[in-house]
């Protein structure tokens, strides 16, 4: 069996006096599709943001591909990583946000080509060729010249996915990517992600409230509550036969709120 691509060990993180992550540990295998579910404030989004280096950790260690994410060794000491190390580690990881975070002053194709050109020195022609392939894959090739303001939410999110893919990350983080969308636009984004899951061997971590999608998409489901993983297992086990009472309560509430399982 190969080594885990992500190893999280005893992470603690507080916002003020609120402990979001309380000694969280987990492992992710290469190519694994993970769904992180749980009530809001349970720490599932925070762990994605920590992996993307958008939040700093208070304690613990994270390894990505066997390398420390937040620490570097200097001599015999483990010291906090500098910006250069973080930039190197970020190359392995991409993220798609709940609110798309497209650059409003750049056209669709410029949104996709900007980072490869600036961070990897890819020539414009090559970057645009790759961008068109990706836009085609997410069904947005005909909007390449549009500005983000001319797109629907679902279209924006598909462009954001193409933009993240343009850097060819090994790990993709999806943070409630359909939560801000009108119901009728959710499916077009989920379809893109289904294809990604089937056609690539990328490791994917997904924070979602779409339980039906999580069930079909994930190899493994983690249920978060109060900064810890309460229960984890195969989608069928978690959704059909949850063992922990907190998982059962959460799923009951979600179903009552009208989400499909």
């Amino acid at each position: 069996m190969s080594a885990p691509i992500i190893e999280i060990d005893g992470i603690t993180k507080s916002f003020g006096s609120f402990k979001v992550l309380d000694g969280l540990s987990m492992k992710v295998m290469p190519g694994e599709k993970l769904a992180l579910i749980g009530p809001s404030g349970s720490g599932k989004t925070t762990i994605l943001r920590i992996l993307m280096t958008l939040e700093r950790i208070d304690g613990g260690h994270i390894h990505v591909e066997g390398e420390q994410l937040y620490h570097v060794t200097r001599g015999d000491d483990l010291v906090p990583a500098d910006e250069r190390h973080l930039a190197k580690m970020r190359q392995k990881i991409g993220m798609v946000f709940q609110l798309f975070n497209l650059f409003p002053h750049k056209s669709v194709i410029d949104n996709v080509t900007l980072a490869p050109m600036l961070t990897k020195g890819v020539a414009r022609a090559a970057a645009e060729k790759r961008a068109m392939e990706l836009l085609d894959m997410v069904g947005m090739a005909d909007k390449a010249k549009s500005m983000p303001s001319q797109l629907s939410g679902g279209q924006k999110q598909r462009v954001a996915i193409a933009r993240a893919l343009a850097l060819s990350p090994k790990i993709m983080l999806f943070d409630e990517v359909t939560s801000a969308l009108d119901p009728e636009l959710v499916e077009e984004v989920l379809n893109v992600m289904r294809r990604l899951a089937e056609e690539t061997d990328m490791t994917m971590l997904l924070v979602t409230h779409e339980m039906g999608f999580a069930h079909d998409f994930a190899d493994r489901v983690l249920f978060f509550d109060r900064g810890r993983i309460v229960e984890e297992g195969k989608p069928d086990d978690i959704f059909r036969h949850p063992k922990q009472e907190r998982t059962q309560t959460f799923l009951r509430k979600i179903i009552a709120a009208g989400h499909r399982v």
Binding site: F97, L118, T119
Partner: peptide
Amino acid sequence: KEQYEACVALNLGRWQCMRHIILPQ
């Protein structure tokens, strides 16, 4: 803040983010 976060997620440097994303807006 979300524009800065997109910069981090796309691995742009501080100055690249300022020059290409923040300042034009």
